[in-house]
Write a protein that binds this DNA or RNA. Structure first.
Lengths: 245, 245
DNA sequence: GGCGGGACTTCACACAGGTGAGCGCCGGCC
DNA sequence: GGCCGGCGCTCACCTGTGTGAAGTCCCGCC
């Protein structure tokens, strides 16, 4: 059930069989959500940490006048925010993009786990730090990259994140994001996203069709995006995972 | 020495005298930096957690072609990243804006503290969550706000953060940021920042002169920025701090 | 197998913000 | 007390991206 999370954490550290069993033990109280459903709303009181098993979701904020910004995407194996329950209320919302299957980890379970399993705790800290780094990189993306670079960067990031958990097939992966959502994530309009995708397709940078993304030449896409993967803090392409790669 | 951090944490929870003494005990190995000096560089291996006692600093990234984005500002009482030392290398740099005085907290000290002082630990988690929320808000700022709104939002945020640690004087605070730095933080050019500041001054939203910011009407500035302070997760304007406000 | 709605695509036009350059002020330094 | 460099400020012009609207495609549903 939790193989995506485990596989991701193993990019940072080796986990013992016991560690893995403990993590697997988290998977009670599974929650299912339909596309478009809110997982949590602004103003709600966070009670547990959400862990995504399957499906994609987005974290977003909406300004009073309707302008919307997606602040991050969740893919399988992602954790919401370690310790969110410390906060009194959510300052943003999270919505399912595709059908989503997630585990709600109660605070006591999480705290107990962090109390007793130092290796897992360190791995979860790593996860937290990487998420912060991703958020910072998005800041750079929105602040200083052009439309084409922004989109290329997002494609690179998501492709590599998915590859790290084994959800790519060669140079292809699922990509269930609409152009409107891409616009809300990159600070553009859907019209301009459309124009720019056209340009990227013409340049042979991506093939994007039927909720599937193909990256014919990752190096070229990286270059177009000024993409530097260091902020994901993966051990060089999962070197120590080569056994089961 | 650490009153800014303590004052900030007390917006989240009451700390015992013992807790405060423990925090004060952190202040060894103080480091001094000149304006412009790098506190840590991209590629460096983080060895300890930096805690800012005095002065302002910025976290930034530079693209290959020189475009620069400031991803956050550090003010007194701010912590760099709890547990950074878990990562092998920095994915960005941090530079002093003014003369900076900071404490380098070694990993063992920090881990020991988090082992023995649950209340402090919870407060530090809160700090971490708030920093993540600030980073997300910057994403919204860059993605969906206009130039004037972005600047107004930044002024609101910094004013309120400074007020939370007692570094405002009425509706005035220190503001040692150049227009170029403002541009790098808001994803604009310095020319356009200048234009926009002119407009904001004309509208009576701010008085900015000689490294000092005055906010004649915070409510008006908030409105202009579409600013919602919920993401800072401060107890309503330091309600429980009223004793020493 | 037709209908409806969401997603994608395109167009003509508008404007926020970028570009490159130049000037003046001010404070630090020899 | 003069020089120098950083910062603030302005200008004329340019362009990347937004706006509003409309048409098409495709898939799920009755």
């Amino acid at each position: 059930m939790l193989h995506h999370l485990i596989r991701k954490l193993e990019h940072f550290t080796r986990l013992s069989d016991d560690d893995k069993a403990v993590l697997q033990g988290l998977s009670r109280t599974v929650r299912l959500l339909e596309p478009g459903a809110d997982i949590i709303r602004e103003g709600d009181s966070p009670e547990h940490v959400n862990l995504f098993l399957d499906g994609w979701a987005s974290r977003y904020k909406q300004l009073e006048d309707g302008r919307r910004q997606i602040m991050s995407f969740f893919v399988p194996g992602d954790l919401c925010d370690l310790h969110v329950f410390i906060l009194r209320e959510m300052d943003h919302a999270i919505a399912a993009i595709t059908p989503v299957r997630l585990v709600q980890v109660p605070r006591e379970v999480l705290l107990g786990l962090m109390d007793r399993h130092p290796r897992i705790t360190r791995a979860l800290w790593w996860e937290t730090l990487v998420n912060a780094a991703i958020q910072r990189e998005w800041t750079v993306n929105l602040g200083r990259r052009t439309a084409l670079e922004r989109l290329a960067h997002l494609f690179c990031e998501l492709f590599i994140r998915l590859r790290a958990i084994g959800l790519t097939d060669g140079n292809t992966c699922a990509f269930p994001i609409t152009q409107l959502e891409l616009a809300d994530a990159t600070g553009l309009t859907s019209v301009h996203v459309n124009r720019t995708l056209k340009e990227m397709r013409a340049a042979g940078l991506i093939i994007l069709k039927g909720r599937q993304l193909t990256v014919p030449d990752l190096a070229a896409l990286r270059k177009a995006a000024l993409f530097n993967p260091n902020y994901l803090h993966l051990e060089r392409d999962g070197a120590h995972l080569s056994a089961n790669a």
